[in-house]
Amino acid sequence: MDRTPTLRQVAAEAGVAVSTASRALSRPGRVSEATTSRVVEAAERLGYPVGGAVRLLREGMTGTVALVVPDIANPYFFGIIRGIQARLRDGGYVHVLVDSEESVDAEERALRRLRSRVDGVVLAAPRLEAQRLEVWSRSVPLVTINRQVGGAYVLVDTPGGAVQALDHLVSLGHRRIAYAGGPRSSWSDRRRRSALRQAVRRAGVDVVWLGPYAPRREAGPAAADAALSAGVTAVIAFNDLLAFGVLDRLAARRVAVPERMSVVGCDDIFGADLVRPALTTVAVPLERAGHHGADLLLASLEGRTVDPVLLPTHLVVRESSGRARA
């Protein structure tokens, strides 16, 4: 009965120490090119599995993928980064992280500089126009998260989550509700507005459209003031950070939540259950989104056909939403 060859046998076949053979097969940059080639050839003769890093080196690839995010300080992207990192590590890749700082120009500059230095790019919530993204997808292997480009993308159903939030508030008796939107360049925000417009007609309630706002806590006070001026009883915020800022301002103005104003966020980031009152929000599978994004890119690099991925969301009801005041 045949047995799988051992690393010791590979080392003996190549005429090197076991430790050298291990480095050559797992971290080929740590030993000379000649030694690596000798060890790899010995492994292939014996049928010993060659690792991803060696495969990439032999195929002339960098083993590096770029991940571009709009705001590295936004906790929303932490889970995506973890998911991508874990999947790339399993595939023998590393990633470089780029913060475009919510700038369309910075996003395009990053793509221009990185395309010849990495094997592919994952764009999380890109701000570039659709036409430019299509151009870049033909120039470099590209996967988008929360943006529909070509056939390699991951979408998170936040529009469906926004409708869940609206239905929840309607069930609590709210009839005039504000939506505090995100950046003007946000494709996800446009999808949510479209979904909410359809849901509003079905529910027979009024929605006040506020924004655009930066998806940051500092923008929340302005959104809260606008909501109070509009005479609404509830606010659906573009993301949790914006909702945190809304809660801050309502507390400063001594507006009781949820007795006088209900607040709902989106993303269920770390801290959503720690603010007071704890935030009702749409939970998003961020790590799964990152994992799928990396998986699609690796499949594309290997020449495999890929299909888009759509991930569901769900509403987490906490203390910041309650019955509308009489």
Results as ranks from 00 to 15, higher is better:
R197F: 07
N74G: 07
T144Y: 01
S194E: 15
A106V: 02
R193L: 14
S103A: 13
H95E: 14
G92C: 10
V98W: 01
R87C: 09
P126F: 04
V135C: 10
I81P: 08
L172C: 14
V69T: 06
R193F: 07
V118L: 12
V122E: 08
R117I: 02
V68I: 15
V104S: 03
Q198P: 00
V143P: 02
L196I: 05
W187G: 10
A162K: 00
V69K: 01
A110P: 11
T158I: 07
R112Y: 13
P183F: 05
G160P: 04
V156A: 03
G160H: 06
D71K: 03
R197A: 13
A199D: 00
R127S: 04
D90K: 10
S137R: 06
G91W: 05
G182F: 00
A124N: 03
P159T: 12
L97W: 03
P75K: 09
P183C: 08
L97D: 12
Y76P: 00
I72R: 01
Y76V: 09
A125P: 03
H95N: 15
S171R: 13
L166K: 12
V154I: 08
D90W: 00
Y153S: 02
V118H: 05
N146R: 10
S194K: 13
Q148M: 12
L128F: 10
N74M: 09
V68L: 14
S100W: 00
G83T: 08
A165V: 05
H95W: 11
W136M: 14
Q85R: 10
Y76T: 08
H168D: 01
S137I: 08
R193E: 15
F78R: 01
L166Y: 15
D119E: 13
W187Q: 13
S116R: 14
A165L: 12
V135A: 15
T144M: 07
S171A: 15
D90Y: 00
L114P: 01
V94S: 15
A86L: 07
G151N: 11
I84V: 15
I145S: 00
S186K: 02
W136A: 14
T144H: 01
I80L: 05
F77N: 09
W136G: 10
N146K: 06
G173K: 04
F77V: 04
A130N: 12
Q85G: 09
P126D: 08
L111V: 03
D99A: 09
S139T: 12
S116H: 06
E102Y: 08
W187V: 12
L114Y: 03
R89S: 15
A130S: 14
V98R: 01
L142W: 12
R89K: 15
G181C: 13
A195M: 01
S188C: 04
R192H: 08
I81Y: 05
A199R: 02
R175Q: 12
S103W: 05
A86K: 06
D105H: 09
P159S: 14
L155F: 06
H168Q: 07
G204Y: 06
V170N: 02
R113F: 05
L196G: 04
Q131I: 03
R193V: 12
A152I: 03
I81W: 00
S116C: 00
R201P: 00
G91T: 14
E134H: 11
